[in-house]
């Protein structure tokens, strides 16, 4: 997939530059440098956040949040044992996503689908729990969108963090839409 996106962007750029007459040399030579700058710029915040969240993890704070979340999440997974490994992995995954712990979210998520496959005997077909779980992960559930805020600071925003409430509301609405769609389609197919 990525090879087509990368290739298409470059070929379309070359074609457009023939139409518009805009040169590409500067972009080809300067943009990689800007990429390095951007990476270094984001690196500081990513490392600080990673360090802080590592403290949250080893001090048991994430586990605490995870067990509180379990009460809400239980309703979304009626088919799963609430004390089982699958459900616990789901709670850890959602907590990691909320806290912006990308490193921890993916392994917990993979464990969750593996355990769901065992518990529900999936074969090669996605079970309703798996669908709900995957949809939870494809809607972003981030409490603090640190990358977006860092970049807004970089480009001189007067209120870089003001977007947070709008992000929460948007996430909540899109998640509700996706979950409703998943649940309705599941019911539709059973009939």
């Amino acid at each position: 997939m990525m090879k087509y996106i990368f290739g298409l962007l470059i070929i379309l750029s070359a074609a457009a530059s023939l139409i518009t007459g805009n040169g590409l040399t500067e972009a080809i030579l300067n943009e990689p440098v800007r990429a390095v700058e951007l990476c270094i710029y984001l690196c500081g915040g990513m490392c600080f956040w990673g360090g802080l969240m590592r403290i949250a993890e080893s001090s048991g704070l994430t586990e605490k949040i995870s067990s509180v979340l379990g009460m809400v999440l239980g309703k979304l997974f009626p088919g799963l044992d609430k004390n089982g490994r699958a459900f616990r992995a789901i709670c850890m995954n959602v907590t990691a996503n909320l806290l912006g712990l990308g490193n921890a979210a993916t392994p917990a998520g993979i464990e969750a689908v593996k355990e769901m496959a065992k518990e529900e005997g999936a074969g090669d077909t996605a079970t309703p729990s798996m669908i709900i779980f995957t949809v939870l992960n494809t809607a972003s559930l981030t409490l603090i969108p640190s990358t977006a805020i860092s970049l807004r600071i970089k480009y001189g925003s007067t209120a870089p963090a003001e977007i947070i409430p709008a992000i929460w509301i948007t996430s909540a609405v899109s998640l509700t839409a996706a979950l409703t769609a998943a649940i309705l389609m599941n019911r539709g197919k059973k009939k």
């Binding site: 993916t106 998520g109 993979i110 689908v113 593996k114 769901m116 496959a117 999936a122 090669d124 077909t125 996605a126 798996m130 669908i131 779980f133 995957t134 949809v135 992960n137 494809t138 809607a139 972003s140 948007t170 996430s171 609405v173 899109s174 998640l175 839409a177 996706a178 979950l179 769609a181 998943a182 389609m185 599941n186 197919k189």
Partner: peptide, 28 residues
């Protein structure tokens, strides 16, 4: 995300995962 999770357990029939997720994205 879908590829990573379903790939990990060899799910081939994703059923209504993709339509539901895309509805979420467009809404977003």
């Amino acid at each position: 995300t879908i590829a990573v999770y379903y790939g990990a357990v060899g799910i081939k029939k994703t059923r209504h995962t993709v339509p539901a997720a895309i509805i979420g994205d467009i809404t977003g």
